[in-house]
Amino acid sequence: MNTTNNITELCELGIRIRPSKTIEGELDCIAELRLCSGDVELGEETCEIAISKMTLSLDVEGLEPVPGSRFGEPRKQPVTEMERTVTQTNSAGKTLKASAGANLDSTTPSFGISASGELQGSSQYETVLSSVDRFEHQRVKARPNLRWEVREPNDAPLDGTYLESDSLVRMSRSERANRAAFVARATVKQRDVAIKQVMQDAASLNFFKRLSTTQRRLMDIFIAKSIDAALRGSGRYSGEITLSSSSIELPHEE
């Protein structure tokens, strides 16, 4: 196993393979993932970097994912709540509302509401049905093609332990495969990275005060490009930054 955490201040990824405890002949891909915001030295400047969304991906060779074994993939259920709203308008133009089963103020002689929730009297009314879906936010959510999206509610900065000795997926060896290996990557898009300049002295503070909004945006892009070029070593910028990577080649099975 070969693991590289390129920016240790922001991301720590660990991947290992072990035989499955549930099904003989299958392999568990065990992952650990910790993320936080932090100060990173870029050239002569110190920048505070925060990440709002990250992707954890697996590229496999000679292995096949076992159906139904992926982490963070609860089946979506048809959970729907129906709410009934009753609107009444009296002769004076006053509007009263109540949900089904509730009690309206029946001091006005012209109308009221029975114990069963049905309107009484000749007042005009309408019934509105609305649905509300309730769901639980998955911080590590399975995506197609052996990818997982790591995100907080409301896109808050990622901070904390998101995987700790969790099985990402179970694998089985492909038939007649001569080699079994995979690469795990923790990557972020430039748009999901917030970079803030850290002012260390009065001179740098005065310098950055003179920057226009456009110049600040261009500087952020340049810093992001610098990080990407430093990690890849090729100078080619793809809009994606690799924070961590881990590669494993499994021994040949006799």
Rank of each mutant, 00 (worst) to 15 (best):
Thr46Gly: 02
Glu175Asn: 11
Glu41Thr: 09
Met171Val: 10
Leu243Pro: 07
Arg151Phe: 01
Ala203Lys: 01
Val66Asn: 06
Leu119Phe: 13
Arg176Ala: 13
Glu118Cys: 15
Arg232Gln: 08
Met171Asp: 02
Asp159Met: 12
Glu81Gln: 08
Thr8Gly: 10
Leu243His: 01
Gln138Val: 02
Thr161Ala: 12
Asn145Pro: 06
Leu168Asn: 06
Val79Ile: 06
Trp148Gly: 06
Gly62Glu: 05
Asp228Ala: 08
Ala177Leu: 11
Thr213His: 07
Cys29Gln: 05
Glu118Met: 13
Ile15Leu: 15
Ser247Val: 14
Ser226Gly: 07
Ile195Ala: 13
Leu58Val: 04
Thr242Trp: 08
Thr107Ala: 07
Ser226Val: 01
Ala92Val: 00
Phe135Trp: 03
Arg173Pro: 13
Glu24Pro: 01
Leu163Gly: 03
Pro74Glu: 05
Arg170Pro: 08
Ile221Pro: 00
Asp228Cys: 01
Glu81Lys: 05
Ala50Glu: 12
Glu149Gly: 08
Leu218Met: 13
Ser110Asp: 05
Ser226Ile: 00
Glu254Arg: 12
Arg75Leu: 03
Thr80Gly: 01
Pro251Asn: 14
Ser106Gly: 04
Val169Tyr: 09
Met171Gly: 07
Leu168Gly: 06
Asp105Gly: 03
Leu243Lys: 02
Ser238Ala: 08
Ser123Cys: 14
Ser52Val: 04
Arg185Ser: 12
Ala180Trp: 09
Met82Asn: 01
Thr85Asp: 09
Gly43Phe: 04
Arg16Cys: 14
Val128Asn: 01
Thr87Cys: 14
Leu96Thr: 09
Thr214Tyr: 11
Thr127Ser: 02
Pro109Phe: 04
Pro78Ile: 00
Arg210Trp: 02
Arg216Ala: 08
Ile223Asn: 05
Pro65Phe: 02
Ser131Ile: 01
Val169Ile: 15
Met199Leu: 15
Met1Thr: 04
Pro157Arg: 11
Phe207Ala: 06
Arg179Trp: 06
Phe135Val: 05
Ala181Asn: 11
Arg75Trp: 00
Thr85Ile: 05
Leu211Thr: 02
Thr22Phe: 12
Lys53Glu: 13
Pro251His: 08
Gln200Pro: 00
Ala98Glu: 09
Leu35Phe: 03
Leu10Glu: 10
Val193Gly: 05
Thr87Arg: 08
Arg179Cys: 14
Asp228Glu: 11
Ala184Asp: 08
Val150Asp: 08
Tyr237Val: 10
Thr213Tyr: 09
Ala100Met: 11
Arg176Gln: 14
Cys36Val: 12
